[in-house]
């Protein structure tokens, strides 16, 4: 099954804590939030580190490379799509979609790379496609 192009993506609603993430995505860059106190990256991005609760967190540009942790092809939808959790090379696992490929070939453990898809607004969504 091949993804069709007609699926309209809802726009994210950024807030002051997350605006930089979405600004970067619009420019085709994936950011992760990293804690300079404990050194760990997390997702979704927060001002306070969810591991050590330090407020010394900052943005880092991610490689955009990751591995599929799990996925599901949503068949019962107007336009079928594949939802997934992708584990980034930087550590954290994020929810996303796997796109631009034959859904039947998607496997857990598959290497993927980020791609940025337009939404109903000017925002772009980080998604993943086989590397």
């Amino acid at each position: 099954m091949i993804a069709m192009e007609s699926r309209t993506l809802p726009a994210p609603e950024p807030n002051p804590e997350t605006k930089s993430y979405w600004d970067a995505a619009q420019e085709g860059k994936l950011l992760v939030r990293i804690c300079t106190a404990c050194g760990r990256a997390h997702h979704y991005p927060r001002a306070l580190c969810p591991f050590c609760f330090s407020d010394r967190t900052e943005w880092k540009t991610a490689s955009g490379n990751g591995t599929i942790y799990s996925f599901s092809v949503m068949q019962r939808a107007p336009v079928p799509y594949t939802i997934a959790y992708v584990t980034l090379d930087e550590g954290p696992t994020m929810m996303s979609n796997i796109v631009d490929c034959d859904f039947d070939t998607i496997r857990i453990g598959m290497k993927v790379k980020a791609t940025f898809k337009p939404t109903e607004s000017t925002a772009r969504l980080p998604m993943f496609t086989p590397a």
Binding site: L9, S70, S72, M74, I83, I108
Partner: peptide
């Protein structure tokens, strides 16, 4: 305002595909 919504809703999470990912894993 739910902190996770903007990082999930645009990707189309539903009740069933979330549990499906548990089953797949």
């Amino acid at each position: 305002a739910q902190p996770d919504i903007q990082f999930e809703y645009p990707y189309g999470p539903t009740i069933v595909n979330m549990y499906a990912m548990c089953a797949m894993r």
